[in-house]
Design a binder for these strands. Structure first.
Lengths: 234, 234
DNA sequence: CATTTTTGTTAACATTAGGTTAAATGGTAA
DNA sequence: TTACCATTTAACCTAATGTTAACAAAAATG
């Protein structure tokens, strides 16, 4: 069983605590990269793919929440776990809003941490198979590169897509010819499902339709009350 | 805003705490079914589909863990959140082993609970996409795709169905050649059984008959006072 | 067979979702 | 700071959906 270890990005400014935690995780067969502050954390994050991020909330220069937001912008899927000394209510709320997967109060039981990590990885495992590494799509006569965020028609000059345009089109492409539920896009991209985010999404659908106009075989259909459907007619 | 609320099964033996929590959740647009002990909880679970289970750990007769195990046997997907008075380490570990999605210590902040619920639901929303239910039916020379809500005759241009048309035809198809009781459609689709919903349903039956006219072998028969029957003659 | 109940059908009406454009907001870099 | 860009919010309009009323027809009832 040749199995690659899961990779964890640990961002923790306390050198003692950070080192202990890192060693403990490594003893349990995780590959751990330890960054000493938010800035360094983001640099390391950009350089590699991680299966999990463990972020200290209180850090100089760049706190855990800000870092989490940046990470989410680049990759909306990585599980994120926050570490806090004191579990203040506002913190917890803020964390969940940024898309936290779990919360840990320092000092915590290391065995509990391992269980949580395991549980989170399991959760993500199922999703990851389907949509993790998919960045390039052919959409009729278009090419979408959702990593570089551009859309090219007939191999011509690429149009640059904004992050939201890109994510939305990517979700549609993942569900090509099938229903892409409204709710899915709202929770995945907007992380909230209310009247305004919903209207915002409609605005983006309009933008995408405009981009896709050159190929009249490609269209985004609405399924009233359910969501949208990217169809390629042939 | 015709949106179906998420359904929560709350199993909590403390009547005061349970009632307060239930009311709070209902105020926040969740449908809550409250069971007073593990046994009752499992009965209620079997009778309906839930989007989330909130289980008290300490309960007479059947504790939360045992209940969770039973629930997992029937349905491995429902998110489960445990409530504990004291967060003993063994409990937490046991919980994660049974497949807990989260943990809450009593007393907890209600706002935090809401955020956690939201986060968990969001997580599940993505996985849920792929659950391949029964969406496609052949009805004589028609194809019904009840996910995309369309009906196609002889592989031609699909007719779009409204949600109610779609649900009704789907129910009829599920009972092909058999009685589909009025009451069933009314409770399942209209969620209410009175004079007006009943008349509304008749209106929809008329619409479906019109759609199905092209295939004269397909008809919707009425069984007076009982319901309808979708028959395919051959 | 007269009467009541249930069903069939059509159309008017009300409500909600979605399409589109433009202006307001907010963040970021020059 | 200004200028720019992505995104949200607002506004207005159209399409889609669902409910109700009204009346006709069919089925059950005694």
């Amino acid at each position: 069983m040749e199995e690659v270890n899961k990779k964890i990005l640990l961002v923790e400014d306390d050198p003692n605590f950070g080192t202990v935690l890192k060693d403990y995780l490594m003893m349990n067969d995780y590959d751990v990269v330890h960054a000493k502050n938010g800035m360094e954390g983001f640099e390391k994050f950009k350089k590699d793919d991680y299966d999990l991020c463990i972020l200290d909330v209180m850090m100089p220069y760049k706190d855990g929440f800000t870092l989490a937001k940046e990470i989410r912008e680049k990759n909306s899927d990585v599980p994120i776990v926050f570490l806090t000394a004191k579990a203040m209510k506002e913190d917890v709320l803020k964390g969940y809003k940024v898309g936290a997967d779990d919360y840990l109060n320092k000092p915590f039981d290391s065995e509990v941490l391992l269980m949580k990590i395991k549980a989170i990885m399991q959760r993500k495992a199922t999703e990851t198979i389907s949509d993790s590494k998919q960045f390039e799509f052919k959409i009729g006569r278009f090419d979408l590169n959702s990593k570089l965020r551009f859309l090219r028609f007939d191999g011509g000059e690429p149009i640059k897509l904004s992050p939201k345009e890109n994510e939305l089109l990517r979700l549609l492409a993942l569900h090509e010819n099938d229903l892409m539920p409204r709710e899915l896009a709202l929770t995945k991209i907007w992380r909230d499902d209310n009247y305004f985010t919903s209207r915002s999404m409609d605005v983006y659908i309009a933008k995408l339709r405009k981009y896709l106009k050159p190929d009249e075989k490609v269209e985004i259909l609405n399924i009233h009350g359910e969501g949208f459907r990217l169809v390629i007619n042939d």
